[in-house]
Write a protein that binds this DNA or RNA. Structure first.
Lengths: 187, 187
DNA sequence: GATATACTATACCGTTCTGTATAATATATT
DNA sequence: AATATATTATACAGAACGGTATAGTATATC
């Protein structure tokens, strides 16, 4: 709707990723976005509300990008899960990759009763369920089990890349994923 | 040396894990530890210094615990790497487990030039090298590759457990690790 | 008993934090 | 031209932040 609202949302997304959420004040956000606090608080009632929206949008963007990749490149269900980590590699090694929002947010807000932590946890769970759906469509028996293992590799690789850009961890995650997928298919 | 210094260090460790590092002020730390800021700043010159010491001690404690487990339970080098995830499971499912310091810290301090981020990154790298040493002692060819894969599973499982206590992720990480280790041995 | 050391108590400094109040200005609609 | 809406500019409240200064107390050593 509003271009200014989007600008604030995108600026906050970038600053949260590069400087941390708690270390980024609203004054910094509005200064970089080129607006004022009054406008920020018009669109986002609290900083927590802004954080939640940033997390939601980030995850939606990632999921849409991945859905599109899977739907345009893969046809058979078995192909989709086999190509999953190819696209994840593309995502992680992209120059614009700054980390995974829900992974960082859950670390900054460790209390399980905190709304930000809860959203992070939900996003992690939903992504795991997404993988599980891919697995069960490929007729894999223990779809949930494989999905959990693949999500561990995914989150581990993201973590490694957040710690050291260009770590190359995703290459080995891919190999491990292939082994786990092949093992689950031939069962 | 000083009981008070240890008390501050332990209190900070606990508060950083349960509330986050940036969300925990020095006033809170001294209040919970039952001392004053003057004493805290006598032993730790800055908050950053305290954070670095907390990270170092946490990692040393984990590594010592793991070393002891491996040396008393396993004899042959191949047994050590095979039992590694049994002990990691024991560690993660222990009631006192509150998360992995270096994983959370790297998320709270995402800038790679930040000393806290650098220490986190170093600790992650050193733990990976520790696994690699276990692998090469077990005569595994691509020891570094396997170590990287196992560390992804480890960090992924820790991440999952930090997001949701009792997630059960470690059980599936263990299965995946067994598959990867067996695959690497028979090569 | 004098002296050093460890620690407490408390007040404070300057800064930053989230969030709001008020007034002025630009822009679009009628 | 009048009016509504969006946005800016600025100042401020109230709290929390990291860190320091000062003064006083307890405890152990000589």
């Amino acid at each position: 709707m509003s271009a200014l609202r989007d600008k604030i949302l995108n600026t906050a997304t970038d600053l949260f990723q590069t400087r941390g959420i708690n270390s980024t004040g609203v004054d910094t956000i509005v200064a970089v976005a080129g607006t004022t606090k009054m406008t920020l608080y018009k669109y986002f009632h609290t900083k927590e509300g802004l954080i939640l929206e940033v997390l939601n949008k980030s995850q939606q963007d990632f999921q849409s990008w991945l859905d599109n990749k899977l739907n345009t490149n893969s046809k058979a269900p078995a192909d989709k899960i086999k190509q999953l980590f190819d696209f994840i590699e593309e995502w992680i090694t992209s120059p614009s990759f700054l980390g995974m929002g829900f992974i960082k947010a859950s670390a900054e807000f460790p209390n399980e009763e905190n709304p930000i932590h809860q959203l992070s946890s939900k996003q992690s769970r939903e992504f795991r369920q997404f993988i599980s759906k891919l697995a069960s469509e490929a007729n894999i028996k223990d779809a949930d089990g494989l999905a959990l293992q693949l999500s561990l590799l995914f989150e581990g690789a993201v973590q490694a890349e957040q710690m050291k850009r260009g770590s190359g961890a995703i290459k080995y995650a891919k190999k491990a994923a292939k082994l786990l997928i092949d093992g689950a298919i031939n069962q």
